[in-house]
């Protein structure tokens, strides 16, 4: 049995338009004849863009966890919370399900996205022979869960708007909120700029 890399449309001389899905029967074409958008058979500079965005997100992930994400004033007593501090406070006030929800959305999901995308990039760079179906599924999960990290940001914006009663009770957003929002946006862009077809390009078999 001879072993050769899996077939792709690119190897057979076709390009799929990223936008409208039209298949173009030439690798020389630069514009899609159907929708007029410029076509490339893979997302251009996919690996470089993804690496750059992951590194930026990783840098901002540190201030996002160190600095307070909000400060709560109740009857003149101010208290600042980091992301983890907020989760611990939720556990102490017996709201375990909500604490788990926030833990998943604001700690585990960003971390999983950064680690998962790094793994995918390593796989592409070192041309690992992997279960490509599984890795594509990992990519899909990463692309899907990204937006749910915004949960913390929305929750803070609602608390800041509602709890605004001067010295009696007030919630103020902290500097970590900006850093965390940037992490979410950057990882979403990172997932979008990664091209899962790169995983398949050097596979000899799947499953």
């Amino acid at each position: 049995m001879t072993i050769k890399p899996l077939n792709t449309a690119q190897k057979q001389g076709f390009i799929r338009c990223h936008e409208c899905g039209n298949l173009i029967k030439s690798l020389a074409e630069t514009l899609c004849p159907v929708c007029g958008h410029s076509v490339t058979s893979r997302k251009p500079h996919s690996v470089q863009h993804t690496i750059a965005l992951i590194i930026s997100a990783l840098c901002l992930y540190i201030p996002a966890n160190i600095f307070p994400i909000m400060s709560v004033t109740q009857l003149g007593v101010a208290e600042t919370h980091t992301i983890i501090g907020g989760i611990v406070a939720l556990i102490h006030s017996d709201m375990l399900p909500i604490a788990l929800l926030v833990l998943v959305a604001s700690i585990l999901v960003p971390l999983m996205k950064l680690l998962g995308l790094s793994l995918l990039l390593l796989c592409v760079h070192y041309q690992w022979q992997v279960n490509a179906r599984l890795f594509t599924r990992l990519y899909r999960v990463i692309a899907f869960v990204g937006r749910w990290s915004m949960l913390d940001i929305f929750m803070i914006s609602i608390l800041v708007a509602l709890v605004d009663l001067g010295g009696v009770a007030q919630v103020i957003a902290g500097p970590a909120a900006t850093a965390f929002a940037a992490v979410v946006v950057l990882t979403m862009f990172a997932a979008k700029s990664f091209d899962p077809r790169l995983i398949w390009d050097h596979q000899f078999s799947y499953e």
């Binding site: 909500i98 914006s157 609602i158």
Partner: peptide
Amino acid sequence: VYALGIIVACVKLAGMA
């Protein structure tokens, strides 16, 4: 996601207001 944010914010506030 915003809807989930409303739910979490309400659960947090339910104790104090």
